[in-house]
Structure formats: C-alpha cells, structure tokens
Amino acid sequence: MSYSLIRDVYEVKKMMVVTLACVLLSGSMAFTATSAPKTIDIVLNEKEIKTQAGTESQQKSIEVKIDEETFQLVEGTDYIISAGHILVSPVYIVSVLDFAVPGKGIWWDNKAKSVTFAYVDIDDYPKPRLTFKVGESHFTEFDKQIELKSKTIMVDGRVYLPLRAVSEAYGKEIHWESNNGQSVVRITTKN
C-alpha cells in the first residue's frame, strides 16, 4: 500500500517550526503590548515568514495542556469545533498517543482519503499503526477498529481528528476550563 505525506514536507515542517516558535516565545518571553515587536520573523528552509505581532490574539484560540506540553491552537488552522466536539490537526494528536510517531510519520493517502500514523518497529522501519478515514466515526489500530463519538472531517483541504475521543481511547482524561475568556483543554494520563 502506498502512502504519501499528509502535506508536503514543507507544510509539516512549517507547522512544527511555527508551533515550536510560539511555545518558546510564550514560555520564555513576557511582552507587554507596548514592548511587543511589530512583526515576528521566522526563517524556515531559507524562506522568511512574517506575521504581524498581536494578530494571533484577534483570532479565536484555545490552550491545550497535555501532561507537561502546552499548545496554543488557532481556530480554523489548528482546530475546529464541529457538533460540539473539538477536532484538531493530526500533528497535535501525536501527543496523546501511547507510542512515539517518528519524524515524517504522519501520511495522507489521497485515494483512500485517510491519515495514517506510523510507529517504528524493531528493525527501525516506520510502519502504519493508526488509520483515520475522512467521514468515518472510527479509526483502526493495526486491524482493530476503535469507535469515536465524532467523525474525522476535512475542511478546506485540512483534516481534523476528534481530540476527546482519541485522547480517551489512549487512557487520557480531558477537561474543559475557561479562565478570563481563554478556553483551556487539560488532558492528563489516568492514574
């Protein structure tokens, strides 16, 4: 079975670098509105990406805390809400899985309209482990089907997976909080 990358390598790297940059900036620097730079420059593969400082705050966002990791997700890019369920980009699902997904270990199969997550076997070779098909309310792990409370969906060419259902399938507890208008999703490993 032939798999292609979920997006080209550039898209995945760009998302990872931007996410890492946001986490590092938010965790290591405390800017006030007056001292914040007018633009934030990120260089990726010798190409410069410029964003307007402060524009992120105008978009709806949620904070997701998974054990020790924290992500700031932007609506319409990193997550969507559908029928009361939060669905996230596949790169954020990696943090709730109970196995390590190798680099370039998320593949998109355009013919099957499915996302596959790989694991590394004993021979250090990435092999398919999880498959989510767009429009279905279950996923497969190896050959076992696991039911979900919502469907995997595609919006504007982006695939989104149900955060709560996948987290719970891997033994996580999920809690929704709201602090001063900021939504926080807290995901912890069950004891």
Rank of each mutant, 00 (worst) to 15 (best):
K149N: 14
F132M: 08
G54T: 10
E136T: 10
V96K: 00
F139K: 03
K144L: 09
I62S: 04
G157F: 04
G84S: 09
N45R: 13
I122T: 13
A112G: 00
T55R: 03
G157E: 08
W107K: 09
E56D: 14
I106S: 02
S82D: 15
W108R: 06
L161G: 10
N45K: 13
E75C: 04
P90C: 09
E141M: 14
I80R: 01
S150E: 14
V115R: 01
P162T: 11
E141S: 13
E46M: 09
K65S: 10
L87A: 12
T131A: 06
W108N: 09
I66F: 12
I106V: 15
S61F: 11
Q58Y: 12
Q52K: 14
E75L: 14
I80T: 14
K127T: 03
T131F: 00
Y79F: 15
F142D: 15
Y160G: 06
V74C: 08
V101D: 07
D98V: 10
L73N: 06
V159S: 01
K149F: 03
E46H: 11
I62D: 01
D98M: 05
I153E: 04
I146H: 12
I80Q: 06
I49Y: 15
L73V: 08
K151Y: 03
A118Q: 05
I153M: 02
D124T: 01
E48T: 12
P126S: 03
